[in-house]
Design a protein around this nucleic acid. Structure first.
Length: 109
DNA sequence: ACCGTGACGGCGA
DNA sequence: TTCGCCGCCACGG
């Protein structure tokens, strides 16, 4: 990955790489990604994602919380940002329940 | 080098 | 089932 010369740690690059593996119409939880990169903390993944310098390259919108909550979007947990994220997922074929939570059937292992 | 913060997760009330 | 608290990891100041 050398699209930009941003200086990021190997950990972040690792996280981005894992997220890139997520197919459209599917979503993964921060915890799952954490395990992928060999980390036991989903928080660390969130930190890396919020810094995501590869915005369109890395589909961060396909990453949700284990509670099936949308999570955040570009460092913003506000309604508008989340709304945009959910809209993108819906576009990819992801469905949500009445509570606004992602259906687990879309969860990637 | 140290402390505080944060797109979370799991357990308990 | 929902709300709250504590715990983990990595990063910025």
């Amino acid at each position: 990955m050398q699209t930009v010369d941003d200086k990021i740690t190997a950990f972040q690059e690792r996280v981005y790489s894992a997220i890139t593996r997520i197919p459209a119409g599917r979503v993964a939880t921060y915890g799952t990604i954490a395990k992928m990169v060999g980390c036991g903390s989903a928080r660390a993944v969130g930190q890396a994602l919020k810094r995501n310098p590869f915005a369109p390259k890395v589909p961060c919108h396909r990453v949700v919380s284990a509670s099936r909550s949308p999570g955040g979007f570009f460092g913003e947990t506000s309604e508008p940002a989340i709304n945009k994220k959910c809209l993108l997922l819906k576009k990819e074929g992801v469905t949500f329940d009445s509570s606004g939570r992602v259906n687990k059937q879309h969860l990637l292992s």
